[in-house]
C-alpha cells in the first residue's frame, strides 16, 4: 500500500516536472537563440559597415581581400553566394537563412560579388583566347600574370591565386565546365570538359620536372612499354595539350599549358 501512493501521484508529478524542465529548457534555448541573434545582427551590421568602408581596399588589395574572404568563410558566410541561392539553408535556422542569404549578398554584393564576377569573366576570356594554343588547359600562375597585365577598359586587376580559384568556383552554377585540376605541384584550369585518364595525368605531371618529356624518359622512369608511352603522347597531342619539338636529340614533348608559366 505504502508504495502505491507515491506510485500513482508520481505519474502526474513526473509529467509536471518534465513539463517544467521542458519549458525551462525551451526558455533557455529561446533566450540563448535571441541573444545569438542579437549578436549575429550586430555582427552583420558591423561586417556590412566594414565591407562598405573597406570596399575600395577589398577590391584593390589582394591580401586584404584574401583575409576578408577567409574571415567570411570562418563564420560561414560565402561572399560569392548569389541572392537567389538558398543552398546554405543547412547552416542556419530555416527562417534565418532565407532572409539571411539574400541579406548577405545584398550587404556584400556591391563590392565583393561584382569583383569576383568580373574576374571570372576575365578568366573565361583568357581561357578562350589561349585555348588553341594550350588545348584548354592553362596554369593558374599564367592566368594570374595575364589578369594582372590586363588590358582594355577595366585596366589591370591585382589578384591573388585564391581570388582566381574563387572566381572559377563562382562559375560552377553555370555548369560551364571550368575545373581546377592539380597536376603534380601545379594548379591548372581546364576549360574544355574532358577527363584526363590516369596515364595522361601521370605524363603531364612528369612534364613539370623539365617542362618536357621524351619517349625514352617515360619508358625509363615509369617502366612503361614503348607502345603505351607513344599512345599516351599521341592522345595528348590530339587534345592539343602537348607541343612537339623535333629539333632536340630525341623528339621532345612539351606541355602547352606551361608556355608562359616558366617565367613567372
Amino acid at each position: 500500500m505504502a508504495d502505491r501512493r507515491p506510485g500513482l501521484s508520481a505519474f502526474s508529478r513526473n509529467t509536471i516536472t518534465s513539463a517544467q524542465y521542458a519549458s525551462h529548457g525551451s526558455q533557455l534555448r529561446s533566450s540563448h537563440a535571441s541573444s545569438l541573434q542579437t549578436q549575429l545582427s550586430v555582427f552583420q551590421s558591423l561586417l556590412h559597415q566594414f565591407s562598405v568602408s573597406h570596399a575600395k581596399e577589398i577590391r584593390s588589395n589582394p591580401q586584404f581581400r584574401n583575409e576578408f574572404a577567409r574571415m567570411c568563410n570562418a563564420i560561414g558566410v560565402d561572399p560569392l553566394l548569389s541572392s537567389s541561392s538558398g543552398r546554405r539553408s543547412g547552416n542556419h535556422g530555416s527562417e534565418g537563412s532565407a532572409a539571411g542569404g539574400s541579406l548577405w549578398a545584398k550587404m556584400l554584393g556591391g563590392s565583393v560579388n561584382d569583383f569576383y564576377f568580373e574576374l571570372a569573366v576575365r578568366v573565361v576570356e583568357i581561357c578562350r583566347e589561349t585555348r588553341a594554343e594550350n588545348g584548354g588547359m592553362i596554369a593558374l600562375t599564367e592566368v594570374k600574370t595575364r589578369v594582372s597585365k590586363g588590358r582594355g577598359i577595366g585596366g589591370s586587376m591585382e589578384v591573388s591565386e585564391e581570388d582566381i580559384l574563387r572566381a572559377v568556383q563562382s562559375l560552377e552554377p553555370l555548369g560551364s565546365g571550368f575545373v581546377v585540376l592539380k597536376i603534380g605541384s601545379k594548379q591548372m584550369i581546364r576549360s574544355v570538359p574532358k577527363e584526363l585518364n590516369i596515364d595522361q595525368s601521370v605524363v603531364l605531371e612528369a612534364m613539370q620536372v623539365l617542362g618536357y618529356v621524351a619517349i625514352s624518359m617515360l619508358q625509363v622512369n615509369l617502366g612503361w612499354g614503348r607502345a603505351r608511352c607513344v599512345a599516351v603522347i599521341d592522345d595528348l597531342i590530339s587534345d592539343g595539350l602537348v607541343w612537339v619539338d623535333r629539333q632536340a636529340e630525341e623528339t621532345e614533348y612539351w606541355g602547352s599549358a606551361w608556355i608562359g608559366a616558366g617565367e613567372s
Binding site: 588553341a132 619539338d245 608556355i259
Partner: peptide, 22 residues
C-alpha cells in the same frame, strides 16, 4: 612573347588547332 623561348615553337605542330595557334 613567351612562345619565342618555347622550343616546340620552331617545329611545325602536327595538331591542326595547335598549328593554327602557332
Amino acid at each position: 612573347p613567351p612562345q619565342y623561348s618555347f622550343p616546340p615553337f620552331y617545329t611545325l605542330q602536327p595538331n591542326l588547332t595547335t598549328r593554327a595557334s602557332q
